[in-house]
């Protein structure tokens, strides 16, 4: 990574990055938990992952360690795979219950 960018990143204190990503993460979590539309839930999961990416990048910069950035790529890759599977499951669900409301899925319980 270019030294300049690292310097630029370091102009903001690490705590702020951490707080920001916590905030994003929390928004993601809240979205997953409280939204009913499955697609939005999937997006919120992505938000959670991306907040982690942000955090990792910040850490990477502060630690002067590129390995975290590699990890970020892995995460993006996995997120893509997950979403692929997720969407296909969503399609299956749509086909079965003709809805994308999570609350429709409650036959298995107890």
């Amino acid at each position: 990574m270019e030294q300049g960018i690292i310097t630029a990143i370091r102009t903001v204190p690490l705590d702020h990055y951490v707080l920001l990503s916590f905030l994003l993460f929390s928004i993601g979590v809240a979205g997953v938990v409280f939204r009913r539309n499955t697609i939005i839930i999937l997006m919120c999961v992505e938000l959670m992952l991306n907040s982690v990416n942000l955090l990792l990048t910040a850490f990477s910069a502060y630690h002067s360690d590129p390995r975290a950035q590699v990890f970020v790529f892995f995460i993006m890759l996995v997120a893509a795979a997950e979403v692929t599977v997720g969407l296909s499951i969503l399609v299956m669900m749509k086909r079965n219950v003709d809805s994308v409301d999570v609350n429709q899925l409650n036959r298995l319980k107890g």
Binding site: F25, G28, V29, V32, T38, I41, L42, V45, M48, L49, V52, V78, E82, V85, G86, I89, L90, M92, M93, N96, V97, V102, L105, R107, L108
Partner: peptide, 19 residues
């Protein structure tokens, strides 16, 4: 239907936990 529901729940919670 059940199989689909299982898959969905597993996926959703799995991804959540992955986060």
């Amino acid at each position: 239907f059940r199989s689909g529901e299982a898959a969905f729940k597993y996926f959703l919670q799995g991804a959540f936990a992955s986060g």
